[in-house]
Amino acid sequence: MIGWKQIPPGMVILEAGSALKIKTGSWRAAYKPRWIEENCIQCLLCWLYCPDNAVKVEDGKRQDFDYEYCKGCGLCALECPGKKGNKAIVMEEEVR
């Protein structure tokens, strides 16, 4: 955190995407999502819908969750189509 004397005039923020320093994963209250790879059809809807960019994708392939930013809303688990009725994302209780 910088003091007011270091803030540029006009409250200009010079570092793009500096919010990445704020790890919103600490917001998760009780549940966290778990990815079950064998049920994943790689539709990437979770990546698109996630409000916190907490689904990592590399070269068009889904990777695991980014728990540093996941707020645990559960949107991905609800929308996951899964494979033959088996969801590829489930919400599990998280003990901290």
Partner: peptide, 24 residues
């Protein structure tokens, strides 16, 4: 989505909108 996922996301994580907000 496969092609789009290769693009840079120009609205990053770390914003303080509520969990489950549709705006981001």
């Amino acid at each position: 989505l496969k092609e789009l996922s290769k693009k840079e996301l120009r609205f990053t994580a770390g914003h303080r909108l509520c969990a489950g907000c549709a705006a981001p």
